[in-house]
Simulated assay, not measured.
Amino acid sequence: MLYWLMKYVFLGPLLRLFFRPTIEGLENVPRKGGAILASNHLAVADSFFLPLMVPRRVTFLAKREYFTGKGIKGRFKKAFFSGVGQVPIDRASAAAAQDALDTGVRLLREGHLLGIYPEGTRSPDGRLYKGKIGVARMAMEAGVPVIPVVMVGTDKANPIGSKMWRPHRIRIVIGEPLDFSRYDGLGGDRFVERSVTDEIMYALMEMSGQEYVDVYAAKVKDAVPPRRRKPEPADRVPGAKAS
């Protein structure tokens, strides 16, 4: 209920008013059953506009800390992230990566539409970076299609380091589903998982026109000295209070 209130009553109308988002290729999203929406990742705003524009509920995996805060602020954050379709996962334990994969596979087998950013983090410069094989592993274990998604303009509306979102037209393009059933029984083979992941990233590159970089985005970020600035307070929507 909270998800639909956020989408159609509270946050959704505000996003539509300021950013006039459009979407192409909705016919490629199955009406029911598990599937992965594998998207490029330009800004925090991606996780707001994709579920807003897709009629089905889109579920994302998010770090558990978003749901465990104390006081009024903690309760607000928990309600907000639950309301936008995020599911908490533990990223602190040694087995955190496997736990996240297991959660994703469970959700897919239950028929959920799972949103995933194969790059693992936001692009630091607008280019498309090497995908992590988790997306392939989940797709193969759950036996679901992977649907490539391209976000356009979110980095202009929500630049890295911005304190407020800036009105800018947002465009979403959904490609044809990628079927990897030919690899049935080969889950766990890292060579196959890398091949599947690269196929997904190639589709995103072709659709987006982004320059592809064959390294992980996280490594590029780690190599850049941190800037002296306050943490991004909210990547805020116009009119919203910082969380």
Rank of each mutant, 00 (worst) to 15 (best):
49 F>S: 07
49 F>P: 00
50 L>A: 02
50 L>S: 00
51 P>F: 03
51 P>D: 10
51 P>N: 10
52 L>R: 00
52 L>E: 02
53 M>W: 11
55 P>Y: 13
56 R>E: 03
56 R>P: 11
56 R>C: 06
57 R>E: 13
58 V>L: 00
58 V>F: 01
59 T>C: 07
60 F>Y: 15
60 F>M: 01
60 F>S: 00
60 F>K: 07
60 F>C: 09
62 A>F: 00
64 R>N: 08
64 R>E: 14
65 E>L: 06
65 E>S: 14
67 F>E: 13
67 F>W: 07
68 T>G: 03
69 G>S: 13
70 K>L: 04
71 G>S: 12
71 G>H: 06
71 G>I: 12
72 I>L: 15
72 I>S: 10
72 I>G: 01
77 K>I: 15
77 K>V: 15
79 A>E: 08
80 F>K: 02
80 F>P: 00
82 S>R: 03
82 S>K: 02
84 V>T: 13
85 G>L: 02
86 Q>D: 05
86 Q>W: 05
86 Q>F: 12
87 V>G: 03
87 V>S: 05
87 V>Y: 13
88 P>Y: 09
88 P>N: 13
89 I>V: 15
90 D>K: 01
90 D>I: 01
91 R>H: 11
92 A>K: 15
92 A>C: 10
93 S>T: 15
94 A>M: 08
98 Q>S: 10
98 Q>G: 05
98 Q>P: 01
100 A>L: 06
101 L>H: 06
101 L>T: 10
101 L>P: 03
102 D>F: 11
102 D>Y: 04
103 T>L: 14
104 G>K: 11
105 V>L: 11
106 R>C: 01
107 L>P: 01
108 L>C: 12
108 L>G: 01
109 R>N: 11
109 R>T: 02
109 R>L: 03
110 E>T: 09
111 G>I: 14
111 G>T: 14
112 H>D: 05
114 L>R: 08
115 G>L: 09
115 G>T: 12
115 G>F: 08
116 I>E: 08
116 I>D: 04
117 Y>T: 11
119 E>Y: 06
119 E>C: 04
119 E>K: 04
120 G>R: 09
120 G>E: 12
122 R>G: 05
122 R>I: 06
123 S>G: 11
123 S>W: 12
124 P>T: 10
126 G>T: 11
126 G>H: 04
127 R>M: 15
128 L>V: 07
128 L>I: 05
129 Y>L: 12
130 K>V: 05
130 K>L: 15
130 K>F: 12
131 G>E: 14
132 K>R: 15
132 K>Y: 00
132 K>L: 06
133 I>W: 09
134 G>C: 02
136 A>S: 06
136 A>P: 04
137 R>P: 00
138 M>R: 02
138 M>V: 09
142 A>W: 03
142 A>G: 08
143 G>E: 07
144 V>E: 07
144 V>G: 06
144 V>N: 10
145 P>Y: 07
145 P>V: 10
145 P>I: 13
